[in-house]
Write a protein that binds this DNA or RNA. Structure first.
Lengths: 223, 223
DNA sequence: GATTCGTCCGGCACCCAGTGCCGCACGCCT
DNA sequence: AGGCGTGCGGCACTGGGTGCCGGACGAATC
């Protein structure tokens, strides 16, 4: 029932457009009653994003299964990967939906509310993880927004290309940009205590931290 | 006409709620025809955010008047200040609207589309400024999202407090967190070269950067 | 095997946001 | 005084979304 409604809806949406398709058209094509449509989808827009509820549940469970030893930033990056994986499971469907949302303003607005639920979920997780920090909530909100932005950057790029290439690798690269700016530990699990070289930094006491970082980074070369 | 419609709408929204107020109620209270409402506001939600169109224009002009010598990150932070200033001009109105958007899901969704226009404007500006950088668009999207998140963090905090305190100072503090992570130059124009103290750090070459930072921070005491 | 009960579906009536269209009144110019 | 553009009101209509009720189906019970 639910799947047949989705199939009928997308068939009509792609044929004659979203706004030119009424709910009556969908239910007559699917052969069900009009009332049943609104039993499965609270609004006409929801049928365009049928899998996001499940995906949000997956993300919530993934974050709830986090250990205290996990790096919070790396964890939310992993959570963002879940969403990208959902898109990557059905490339043609995702690309078709992307074209719809590009054209229809109402769908874009609804998509924003969907994305906002992900961002709120990530922000809530980071907020609890950084409850002891001062400015923990600010940091949580900013990092959550940055992760979502990086994810959407890679996602849109992949969707615009028509579903070519590896979206998981693209989102990892984009997320690495975010992770590297806030998360101290690298993603790789090779500990650094075993190496031998020594770096000496001499700086004035009030030198801003970013200068210290830049100096050390340059003294470390490109690695 | 436009102002009388806004006044009538908010009076009814605060009395009996947003969803319990129909457009007919608004126009009968304002003493105008129903058709005129939709002449001035394309939808019922728009009447709740009557000043955002003008504010978006102000932001666009502010960014267009940017010089190439300006720091892009500082410029978008200044653009975010424009929005906060608009909220701060009418504290009681802003707080009332905040309570409405907290309760009504449809208004929250519409607000997301409004915020998204700001974020897109900031992102477009940064994208042109960073056109030569590799990953310039990714950086632009992430920084724009971070600026919006920091702004909203300060805004929500101020609105939840009922409009107490200085929202401009709060948003500056939040934006400084974003600016300091991406823009090298400090906002204050006092360079750091004039101070005297020296800090010495000795570390292994492959010590992760976060350990270096922690070490320097601890050696600097609490300051 | 008949009854009963919970559940799911269809149909109906209704509300309300939003739109296209037309008529009218007002101010303006000639 | 007589056209004329503009802005407003009214009307009819479309379509999304909801409340309600009746009926069909299957499962448990007697």
């Amino acid at each position: 029932m639910r799947d047949s409604l989705i199939a009928a809806a997308f068939q009509l949406f792609l044929e004659r457009g979203y706004e030119q398709t009424t709910v009556d058209d969908i239910v007559t094509l699917a052969g069900v009653g009009r009332r049943s449509f609104f039993r499965y989808f609270p609004s006409k827009e929801v049928v365009v994003f049928p899998d996001h509820d499940q995906c949000l549940d997956d993300m919530t469970r993934f974050l709830a299964a986090s250990a205290d030893s996990d790096d919070p930033v790396a964890r939310v990056c992993g959570a963002a990967r879940i969403v990208m994986r959902m898109y990557a499971e059905n490339p043609t469907f995702s690309v078709q939906r992307y074209r719809l949302t590009r054209e229809v303003a109402g769908l874009r607005t609804y998509e924003l509310s969907v994305v906002w639920r992900y961002e709120k979920t990530l922000g809530d997780y980071l907020r609890t993880r950084w409850a002891d920090r001062r400015d923990g909530t600010l940091r949580a909100n900013v990092v959550a927004a940055a992760v979502v932005a990086a994810h959407n950057h890679a996602l849109r790029h992949w969707l615009r290309s028509g579903g070519e290439g590896d979206p998981l690798a693209a989102v990892d690269e984009a997320l690495e940009f975010v992770r590297s700016t806030w998360s101290p530990a690298p993603a790789s699990d090779a500990p650094a205590e075993e190496t031998e070289d020594v770096v000496v930094v001499i700086t004035k006491r009030s030198t801003p931290m970013w200068r210290v970082v830049r100096e050390v980074e340059s003294s470390l070369g490109e690695g």
